[in-house]
Design a protein around this nucleic acid. Sequence first.
DNA 1: TGTTTATATTGCAATATTACGATTAATGAC
DNA 2: GTCATTAATCGTAATATTGCAATATAAACA
Lengths: 110, 110
Amino acid sequence: MGITKTDLFSTDQNELAAVAKVFAHPARIAIIQHLLKANSCINGDLVQELGLAQATISQHLRELKNCGIIQGTIEGVSVSYCINPIRWTEIQNLFNGLFDQFENKENQCC
Amino acid sequence: MGITKTDLFSTDQNELAAVAKVFAHPARIAIIQHLLKANSCINGDLVQELGLAQATISQHLRELKNCGIIQGTIEGVSVSYCINPIRWTEIQNLFNGLFDQFENKENQCC
DNA sequence: TGTTTATATTGCAATATTACGATTAATGAC
DNA sequence: GTCATTAATCGTAATATTGCAATATAAACA
């Protein structure tokens, strides 16, 4: 079908999956990594850097923005994007909340 | 097009994106969380627990297994799945490697 | 051997994602 | 005002994902 049965799952499960989906494309990882290095950048920088079309970069930026990972401010004729620190920490905690649930209970399973 | 231009990106970027994709579905999050609680389970347990068809659960389990997050051992007529501790830590480090790159350089951007 | 039980695989329909050309909108320079 | 620059949006084609019924496979046991 191609449609996810979100109603079967908890809000937390859907939220974590939605955030993971944003990370689930190398272009978006590359954009994030570029922002981590450069602090901020504009669409045109990323077109140069990644080698994807302007429309495609714009689309990826929108998804990152929708999720709240990045924010953009209009600066003259261009838009300056950067990482949203509050949301970044929030997402980090979301993943760590999952990762930390695992304790190595040796040989309890396969 | 629907096809990701993986050749434009580094191995690390593609690897992280691929792992994130596995987390990018609530059913797979739910399976992981169930395994964190129960230590191990079989396909049939998850069909009961999640309310998805057996074939669908099997498909999600395969993706989790392909990524290495879980492993399955044949136990009589059924297959017992559990989390792969080594891969788990590896993936945790993969994400933390990204998250830790961010330091709050206040007011340097938007 | 045949039957039961549990899971994997196949095939398919519905929907989502990715990518980009073309167009639109909005700002700054003149 | 016009023109250039930058980014967002629209439309569309190609591919991927999700979900399940049907079928295949494989182990345990009578």
